[in-house]
Computed example of a mutant assay.
Amino acid sequence: MNPPPIDHWQHDHSFHHDNRQAERNTHRVILLTLVMMVIEILGGWLFGSMALLADGWHMGTHVFALGITAAAYIYSRRHAADTSYSYGTGKVGVLSGYTSAILLAGVAALMIGESIDRLLHPNAIHFNEALLVAVIGLIVNLASAAMLHAGGEDHGHHHGHSHHHDHNLKAAYLHVIADALTSVTAIVALLCGKYFGWMWLDPAMGIVGAVIIGIWAWGLMKDTSSILLDRQPDATINQQIREALESDHTKIADLHVRHISPHALAAEISLVSYEPFTTRVYKEQLNAIKNLQHTTIEVHHFNDITSVSPSSP
């Protein structure tokens, strides 16, 4: 006799959120950033501006990081139905965000090193030409940031989540904003050098910008590493689960909650009860908890303990 279908008890393990708009905009930003990188490196070399040259090489590192972002989107989409991933590819973007955060921290360290070297070894600068290239670079960066933000808003509209929950997109956004920040510091430094002769301001602002970028990188690293290491999410989720399931007759003996994607949570729950219900009843009691998409529940009867022999010391 064949067993009946078990579809009702099976979980959907695909927790990938397709964000094609963000993916397309990331490709456009990569192209813009690559073109601007070449222009700034050539401009810095031709016009003697270390600020422009440094900004151009910083853009090069961001092109690499944005490439990781684009690759993560493609990989997540293509492998969304791959059953070898126990909970889907939801963490691919998180891993990409963590990697980009490390690169962002590296950029900050390089900026500090270049700024100190520029402070110790100042050079002659063709201010007008360098300013023109720096302003164009800032416009490109702002346009890129706007495109990435638009991709995040589209994602939020369709899935009910802010773009800040897409760590892959957030990493790309921070890299572009970091580029914009270095462009601003280059423009301010070039203006002050041209009109006031404050050549020291260029490296000083480079150090300030590097510290800000480092703070952004640290924040992104903390967010993504918490998910990658299965750190317990907000304690209120645990409290909500306890309030939904526990009663005078039922207690939670063991509870584990973790992210399986930036937008989805999984819970493993062990219940002990004098009057246990079926697991279906308990899962229905959890339906109101936001983002809890995968639950595994085991139920024990309090009287079962009387049938278990005490373990030997």
Rank of each mutant, 00 (worst) to 15 (best):
I30F: 02
Y98C: 14
K91C: 04
G67H: 01
R118S: 14
T83P: 08
D82V: 10
M50F: 08
L95Q: 10
A108Q: 05
G90W: 02
L46F: 14
V38M: 15
G48A: 08
L131N: 02
G93V: 06
D154Q: 04
A105D: 14
T33W: 02
F64V: 15
E153I: 02
A51M: 03
H157W: 01
V92C: 03
L110W: 10
G43C: 15
F127I: 09
L52D: 03
L110D: 10
A146E: 00
L103N: 11
G156N: 07
A65Y: 07
A54N: 13
G160H: 09
I139S: 09
I68D: 04
G156H: 09
V92G: 03
D154V: 01
Y87G: 03
H158M: 11
V133M: 08
H79Q: 11
A134P: 03
A51I: 05
H121R: 12
L148N: 01
H157P: 00
G152R: 05
A150K: 00
V63T: 05
F64Y: 07
A124T: 13
H161A: 13
D154G: 01
T99N: 12
T33L: 09
G97W: 09
Y98W: 15
R78I: 09
L66V: 06
Y87P: 04
L31V: 12
V35E: 10
S162E: 14
W57K: 03
L66T: 04
I41G: 08
A150F: 00
N128E: 15
G97Q: 08
G106C: 14
I30V: 14
L52N: 06
H126G: 10
Y75C: 07
G88V: 07
G88K: 04
D154C: 00
L104I: 13
T33F: 07
I74D: 13
M147Y: 01
N168W: 06
G56Y: 07
S144C: 00
A146Y: 00
H157D: 02
G67P: 08
V38C: 15
G137N: 01
G43N: 13
I68W: 05
G113H: 09
L142D: 02
G106V: 08
G152I: 06
T83W: 02
D154F: 00
Y73I: 10
Y75A: 11
Y85M: 12
I139G: 08
M111P: 00
D154W: 00
G44P: 02
M59K: 13
H158W: 08
L138P: 01
S100K: 15
I39W: 08
T89V: 06
A70C: 02
I139F: 12
V63N: 02
Y73G: 07
H165W: 14
H157V: 05
L120A: 12
M36S: 05
L132F: 15
L66F: 08
I139L: 13
T33E: 04
T61F: 14
H58N: 15
G56D: 03
S76Y: 03
G93E: 10
G152N: 11
T89P: 07
L169S: 05
Y73T: 07
V35Y: 07
L132D: 13
S49M: 05
